[in-house]
């Protein structure tokens, strides 16, 4: 009582498994290759000087990216100052207040903003702050552009984790006569804090690697930036400059910088995954 085409069907089933498996392997191959080359080229180039010294002028061997590494962290700090409060509070609105219609539009706008190319953000902030010299190419402008890019990211993830907080928590608190805003701040946000932090860290990891928006704002700097109104170096910018260059020593440093940046970004990504392992398991 088997169908006549039974063997053919079984064969097709196996064939499709093999083909789709091959595709999955093909997808992860670049990751493995990028990692392999970064480790191979970058590891030998990383030394103490890389973390402690400033870039050397063309022709001189050695030097490091100390200012770029510091610059990236400074920019991320500024970005967090702008992106986190606006993003989190906006996410609170989306999850806790608002009619469905307005919220649909806010969500839609946030999703659209997430799709705006990063280079576009760069020229917008250039036009907004740099061109009119308020304050020109500067750490401030660089922080602003990264912060603005974080807003829609943080907003959406915050909303999502807040909605995972069971309605019972809110009701229990409101039933005790506690004002809604205090319920939100002290029950809802507190319960979802881990998730919110996760979202913020992932958004930071995402903007940490951004290069295009920084080119016209932070601009880059071969030395230290003494004030926030001066141009500042950043790891991705420095990698880009060195990557384009024809000098072996600079390219060597670009590998090292790329390795450090990738490790930073991946460390956040993997760390966050460990932090939220249970939640993710429950979701899958």
């Amino acid at each position: 009582m088997t169908a006549p085409n039974h063997n053919w069907r079984q064969f097709k089933d196996v064939l499709m498994r093999v083909i789709t498996f091959a595709c999955a392997i093909l997808v992860v191959t670049p990751l493995v290759l990028v990692f392999y080359h970064l480790l191979k080229e970058g590891f030998t180039s990383i030394n103490w000087a890389f973390f402690t010294q400033l870039p050397k002028p063309v022709g001189e061997i050695g030097g490091g990216m100390a200012n770029a590494i510091a610059g990236t962290f400074i920019l991320l700090g500024e970005a967090a100052l702008i992106g986190v409060p606006i993003g989190v509070l906006g996410g609170v609105y989306l999850s806790e207040y608002g009619g469905s219609k307005l919220n649909w539009w806010i969500r839609f706008a946030a999703d659209i903003l997430n799709g705006v190319p990063s280079i576009t953000w760069g020229i917008v902030v250039y036009g907004l702050l740099v061109a009119p010299h308020l304050p020109g190419f500067s750490a401030l402008a660089g922080g602003v552009v990264l912060g603005l890019m974080m807003i829609p990211l943080v907003m959406r993830t915050t909303e999502e984790v807040l909605q995972l907080v069971p309605a019972g928590y809110r009701e229990a608190s409101l039933a005790l006569g506690i004002a809604k805003w205090r319920t939100i701040v002290q029950i809802v946000i507190r319960t979802a804090l881990k998730g919110i932090v996760t979202g913020v860290l992932l958004a930071l990891a995402r903007v940490a690697g951004e290069t295009a928006p920084l080119m016209f704002t932070a601009f880059g700097n071969l030395g230290w930036a003494r004030k926030l109104t001066e141009p500042i170096a950043a790891l991705p910018l420095q990698i880009f400059e060195y990557a384009k260059s024809p000098y072996d020593d600079w390219r060597r440093q670009a590998w090292a910088g790329a390795l450090v940046l990738l490790l930073l970004v991946l460390a956040i990504n993997i760390g966050v995954r460990f932090l939220t392992r249970d939640r993710f398991k429950a979701k899958i």
Partner: peptide
């Protein structure tokens, strides 16, 4: 016996 055949019947 494969489940596919069982479910067919």
């Amino acid at each position: 016996v494969q489940p596919v055949v069982v479910r067919r019947r």
